[in-house]
Design a protein around this nucleic acid. Structure first.
Length: 317
DNA sequence: GTATAATGGTCAG
DNA sequence: TGACCCTTATACG
């Protein structure tokens, strides 16, 4: 997925293009026809992200709750006032970033409404000036505000909110368990929004052994971990991509700011360039390659059904 | 064409 | 721990 940074960007985009708009809501695929009917013709008030959960609040006090899961993605389109990404969600290749519209379309063509749905579109939202299609989500449901609150109650602190006391709550959540820290970081009750890429990368950046029990993580390390996740995920929101390596590790074939602007990609937020796919991570999907820091071969192992990547030299207990 | 992977989560046992 | 759900792009016959 789509880790927390993507969902945050989605909430922002829905707010930007659809808030205050009356929406036609349908389920071309048919699997969500009932839920869509409850929202059809209503106005979107706000869009919120909590961890990996997206909540779209409508003027009849119902909420569209979406969790992209492993494969889910939204695609967008519309007239010239309809800005932002053309697709956000499950990447199909490692390090893939959001797709943006070409921008070379015939400028005077009037907006003719959404195209015929392609593939299995679970839900389509359409205003008078644009549309959004959802495919492959693990959760797509129409719920009440109270039910939305219940979903939130099950989530741990969200690094992209970073509210007062969250670092301490996160540290306590970690230290209460003997489970390996690498598994705890994926538990949304412990911390909400981290996925398989951020967990591998942040453990490397803190030089933490993945199998270290949560109870053995010192308070200072837990708080440093929280701060690093906050910083990395905020970068992810700005970049529209997960980049965990600093520029000193980037080779010259990445996307430059000029190149990005020319193609309509987001302009690199933190530097004069984006790294290439290969340079964006320290260990994620780099098993069999030399560690960027110590040249030891990066390893991969199955931990609770997901692939974990780490450097056995840099990350010792 | 058919298989497989992919940045998730839930439920049963 | 394992089975299962969701969808699509890519790799491989």
């Amino acid at each position: 997925m789509p880790e927390g940074h993507s969902v945050r960007r989605l909430a922002r985009q829905f707010g930007d293009v659809f808030a205050g708009r009356r929406l036609a809501v349908s389920s071309p695929q048919g699997r969500f026809s009932g839920g869509a009917a409850l929202l059809d013709g209503h106005t979107l008030l706000t869009a919120e992200a909590h961890g990996k959960h997206l909540f779209l609040h409508f003027d009849n006090s119902l909420v569209l709750h979406v969790h992209l899961g492993l494969y889910g993605a939204w695609s967008f389109g519309g007239d010239r006032t309809f800005t932002g990404a053309s697709s956000i969600g499950a990447p199909r290749r490692v390090g893939e970033q959001e797709a943006f519209a070409d921008g070379d379309d015939d400028a005077d063509a009037a907006y003719a409404g959404p195209p015929a749905p392609v593939g299995a579109v679970r839900v389509r939202l359409a205003s008078s000036h644009g549309w959004a299609d959802l495919r492959g989500a693990t959760t797509c449901e129409t719920i009440t505000a109270a039910e939305a609150e219940a979903v939130l109650a099950r989530l741990g602190p969200d690094p992209l909110r970073n509210r007062r006391g969250d670092a301490g709550r996160f540290a306590a959540n970690l230290q209460r368990r003997k489970t390996p820290v690498a598994a705890l970081l994926m538990d949304q009750k412990i911390i909400a929004g981290i996925g398989n890429v951020y967990r591998a990368e942040v453990l490397f950046r803190l030089r933490l052994h993945p199998w270290l029990p949560g109870s053995a993580v010192p308070d200072t390390a837990a708080r440093k971990l929280w701060r690093d996740v906050v910083a990395l995920m905020n970068d992810g929101v700005a970049d529209g991509r997960i980049i965990t390596t600093p520029p000193k590790y980037w080779t010259l074939d990445g996307t430059t700011a000029a190149k990005a602007a020319a193609v309509g990609l987001p302009v690199p937020a933190r530097s004069s360039s984006f790294p290439s796919r290969e340079d964006a991570h320290f260990v994620y999907k780099r098993h069999g390659l030399p560690c960027r820091v110590c040249r030891t071969v990066v390893l991969m192992a199955d931990l609770a059904g997901r692939n974990l990547y780490w450097c056995p030299q840099c990350q010792q207990e």
